[in-house]
Design a protein around this nucleic acid. Structure first.
Lengths: 226, 226
DNA sequence: AGAGTAGAAGACCGGTCTGTCTGCTACCAG
DNA sequence: CTGGTAGCAGACAGACCGGTCTTCTACTCT
């Protein structure tokens, strides 16, 4: 049935346009008219599909969340062998996003900075933050950290700092070097000096392979939210 | 002459109202009408004094900058004796701001997140960032760090991370503990283990005593921008 | 071929935005 | 008392906001 396919296509174009505009200029600054103009979609279609601008923003944020999650999980599983390596790997993957020219900071931090009280933005940000803390906590636990939550809190702090520093100072290489060094020092302080190469690569239990939920159609190499 | 005094009073009330509303709800979300209503000032007076909303936002940000600078300099000089202690002290002073109930993140990070292209917000943020980097770099140099700029970049990153983590996760005590530990580890890694107590307190050359530029009138215990 | 429908285009509504302009009030100096 | 002025109150303009609704096109399925 092509009906669903067409409907999905309109939805996809709207989300694509919304992502670019909302992320690039802010969810409050960008009006509905500009979104539908870029998407090539009628206003009525937007309101039939999403119901309100707030819901569109929510969908945009959840798409960012899904994409970030999938990209991170894929990169960590593909490139790094041990939980310890993956802990540091998170920062290398992150540095790729904020080195992109169109990087403008964390989509969730930016959106919550201009959220009106009572919107759904706060809920989306909570989902994202819980994922981020869980990612670091699980990896820290797998790596054998004596205090996984404490290490995770520190690494989340570094992760946040890298994102903000990169946006405010526009010097991605410096930030990447700094965040990598800071993270490495924290990991070493918590886990002890890294062993050279004695235990074999370990299949992670905490990162599930990207389930390819519904993220547009596979392409989209666009920068997302670190 | 009471003319200047009255004029100054109107300006002060406008800045006070603008600070509370812009910081609390975002510079785009808050309209001119709400600012003048809270300030008890006529709209014409606002436009006579500031000329445009953008200029009002700029004045608000510069006031935040002045207040933050003065508060930090005062606390560092008053409470800490050596540059090394002051390096860590920055994070303790910062933790006081994000432990306040009305804390809503860094005013500059929030404002730039919703800035339209071509506004003066970016310029104000640059001023603030240069001050922040300079503060850490000067302290690191005074403390004898072998690579002051490198250490400063790392500490700025931690500073940014603490601000964002505190805003997003609403758990100031955890963030304060984490940022303090991370900063202490970085300082120790750069300067070596802290000597117990052999050299006397040092007058800082990099921090000048708060010059009391023009920050409203001395009161204002409000939380400002970390 | 004809019926049904998804969707594009855009007029329209009430509200709010920034910014301007006109009174009117209250104070102050001479 | 009188002229000058700072400043409050608010109407107003023009643009834009989110959201609704109608019209018409173009495609799909039977």
């Amino acid at each position: 049935m092509t009906t669903v396919d067409r409907s999905g296509s309109a939805r996809e174009r709207l989300l694509e346009a919304a992502s670019e505009l909302f992320y690039g200029e802010g969810v409050n600054t960008v009006g509905i008219d500009r979104v539908i103009e870029r998407a090539g979609v009628a206003k009525a279609s937007l309101y039939k599909i999403f119901g309100s601008k707030d819901e569109l923003i929510w969908a945009y944020l959840m798409e960012q969340h899904d994409a970030t999650k999938a990209r991170m999980a894929d990169a960590l599983l593909t490139r790094y062998a041990t939980p310890r390596e993956r802990l540091l790997g998170v920062f290398e993957v992150q540095s790729e996003t904020y080195s992109a020219a169109e990087f403008r900071g964390c989509a969730f931090a930016n959106a919550t900075a201009e959220a009106s009280a009572g919107s759904r933005i706060g809920g989306a940000a909570t989902v994202y933050r819980e994922w981020l803390h869980g990612l670091f906590t699980d990896l820290a636990r797998e790596a054998g950290a004596p205090d996984p939550v404490g290490l995770a809190t520190q690494l989340v702090l570094v992760y946040d700092g890298a994102s903000v520093s990169a946006r405010m100072d526009r010097d991605a290489p410096s930030v990447a070097a700094a965040s990598r060094r800071v993270a490495a020092a924290l990991i070493e302080a918590s886990l002890g000096p890294s062993e050279p190469r004695d235990r074999p690569p370990v299949k992670s239990a905490s990162i599930q392979k990207p389930q390819r939920t519904r993220t547009t159609s596979g392409k989209r190499p666009r920068a997302t939210a670190p």
